[in-house]
Structure formats: structure tokens, C-alpha cells
């Protein structure tokens, strides 16, 4: 009988291979931790509000400032305590996750789409188009994004759309810069030259021969920007110029708790922790995507 030595076979499924690559490099389960944590956030944001009833404008002054774990008069347990007007902090954390996810996702998609269009145009055509667009980008970079967001958010009625627009105004710039730089190198590749030689239309070259190669770097930036935008929204809401009081936001809850920091720490602490953990984990996820892109980017 012959003994067969099993050869290390590469898994043909690319997602398996890439997951294995990530975990192998950063050390086992720790590497997939950001993905798992962000996944839990997404799950909570989607499912949580369906399971927990919460009315942000209803107050219950009899049960105000209860510490975490208190049993309330109606028999329910306030796991994370209640705030200065007797509202459940846990419910606010869960509903706040949904708000942050909606604003983060919407803003980041708008920023990526607009930034990619601008960057692709500047990088592909160059010349005067590039000079004009690049100067606009330079000006917006020189200007602190959050200040611009505060000005815009402060000018208009508080609302979801205003917050998204305010955060998008400066958020697209990094996508435009990245796309422009990538386009400059991709357009020199032979298949782009081949497509031009074949007489393929400019739009088609941009859409089919350049844009697919922008997806990987943009995906990495998407995660990094998402964290910044969530933080930006919380900042606006904290300042009272973000979302209206009828919408739950971590920023508002943190702001509402700041007067009670010495007596009822849990009001600001739990949404703050939820915010910090999300931003850190999304950032790590972005770093992982980024290093994977750079490793595979040499093809």
C-alpha cells in the first residue's frame, strides 16, 4: 500500500483564502474580531429597535437617574440605568446604533460616489479639469471638515438630511484624492491603451477598464471614513445642532448626561463606550482592508 502525503491545497474559494490570510498574519481569532464586532453593531442596529420599544420624548420622572441594573416600578430591569428624565439608557444605546449606522452608511456612500466621480474625471482627463478640481480639493482639505459641517448644520433646521449633507460636504474629498491618484496610475496600464486603440468610448473605458480597479482601495477608505463620520454626527448632536430631539443619537445622550457625570456616570459612559468601540473597530477593519489591498495591489 502506498501512503499518500496530503499536499497543502489552497482553498479555491477566494473569500476563504483571504480570511485565512488575514487571520494568519494578525494572529488567529483576534484578526476577525473587528469584523465580528462591527457585525454585531449592524445586527443590533437592524434588529434591536424591533425588539425594544422606546419613545424618545416620553419621560418618567419617578424613575430618573436609576443606576444600572435597577428594577423599575413596572417590574422591568434598566440594565444600563436611566437618564435625567427617566428614559432607559440601554434603549438609547440600541436606537443610537441605528441612527449612527444610517447616517454613517448614507454619508459614506454619497461621499464615495461623488468623490470617485470627481477623482476619476480629474485623473483621467488631467489638464485644466484636473487643475480646477484639484484646487477645490486642496481648499477643502485646508478647511477643517467639522467646522464646515457645524456651519451648514447650524444654518438649517435640524434633521437627518441636513446632517448627512453637512458631513458629506467635506467627506468626499479623501475619496476624490485617492481615486485621482489611483486613476493616474491605472490609466497608464496597457489594457487602457488597448481599449483606446480599439476605439472604445471614454465613458466605457472609465466604467469598465478603470473603475473596477478603484473598488479595492475605495473599500478600505470606506471603512476608515465611516468611523470619522459616525464620530462627526455624534459631535454635531452633542453640540445640539445635529439631529432633532425626537431622534435618538449617542451624541445627544452623552450631552444629556454631562450634567450628571459626578452622580450618574452611566448616562454618558455607555453611549460613549458604544461610540468609541464602533469607531475603533471600524478603523481596524479599514486598516485590514487597506493592507490586504496593498498586498494584492501589485498584480
Amino acid at each position: 500500500m502506498t501512503t499518500t502525503i496530503p499536499l497543502p491545497v489552497q482553498d479555491p474559494r477566494p473569500w476563504r483564502r483571504s480570511l485565512a490570510g488575514v487571520s494568519g498574519r494578525l494572529g488567529g481569532a483576534l484578526a476577525v474580531l473587528p469584523l465580528i464586532v462591527v457585525g454585531i453593531y449592524v445586527l443590533v442596529a437592524i434588529v434591536g429597535p424591533m425588539l425594544i420599544a422606546y419613545d424618545p420624548v416620553a419621560t418618567n420622572l419617578a424613575e430618573r437617574l436609576r443606576p444600572p441594573g435597577s428594577v423599575l416600578a413596572d417590574g422591568s430591569t434598566a440594565i444600563l440605568g436611566t437618564d435625567g428624565t427617566g428614559r432607559d439608557v440601554f434603549a438609547q444605546v440600541v436606537y443610537g446604533a441605528r441612527t449612527s449606522m444610517i447616517i454613517g452608511a448614507a454619508t459614506v456612500v454619497i461621499c464615495a460616489a461623488f468623490g470617485m466621480l470627481v477623482g476619476l474625471a480629474a485623473g483621467y482627463w488631467g489638464g485644466a479639469v484636473d487643475i480646477v478640481l484639484s484646487r477645490v480639493i486642496d481648499v477643502l482639505i485646508a478647511f477643517p471638515g467639522i467646522v464646515l459641517a457645524i456651519v451648514v448644520a447650524g444654518l438649517f433646521e435640524r434633521g437627518l438630511l441636513v446632517v448627512i449633507v453637512a458631513l458629506s460636504l467635506s467627506g468626499w474629498v479623501s475619496f476624490a484624492r485617492l481615486t485621482r491618484a489611483s486613476t493616474l496610475s491605472i490609466k497608464e496600464r496597457d489594457w487602457v491603451a488597448a481599449a483606446r486603440v480599439m476605439g472604445v468610448s471614454t465613458i466605457s473605458i472609465q466604467a469598465r477598464h478603470i473603475a473596477p480597479f478603484l473598488v479595492a482601495p475605495v473599500a478600505a477608505l470606506l471603512a476608515l471614513e465611516f468611523g470619522l463620520i459616525v464620530l462627526g454626527e455624534a459631535g454635531l448632536s452633542f453640540l445640539g445642532i445635529g439631529l432633532p430631539p425626537s431622534t435618538v443619537s449617542w451624541g445627544q445622550t452623552i450631552a444629556a448626561g454631562k450634567e450628571y457625570l459626578s452622580t450618574a456616570w452611566w448616562i454618558s459612559a455607555f453611549p460613549g463606550m458604544a461610540l468609541a468601540l464602533l469607531v475603533i473597530m471600524v478603523g481596524l477593519l479599514g486598516d485590514q482592508l487597506n493592507s490586504r489591498y496593498q498586498r494584492g495591489g501589485a498584480r
Binding site: D190, V197, V200, R299
Partner: peptide
Amino acid sequence: ASFRGSRIAMIFQDPLAALNPSQ
């Protein structure tokens, strides 16, 4: 541009580089 592809075509040196890897 109307000549390209339809009346004058080109074959490149490196066929791997001349083909779009994503298509």
C-alpha cells in the same frame, strides 16, 4: 478615433498587460 479598431488595429507586446484582468 473613428479609424481606431475598425480600420487600424493594434496588437500589443505583452498580451497579459493588454487584457483587462477583471473582464
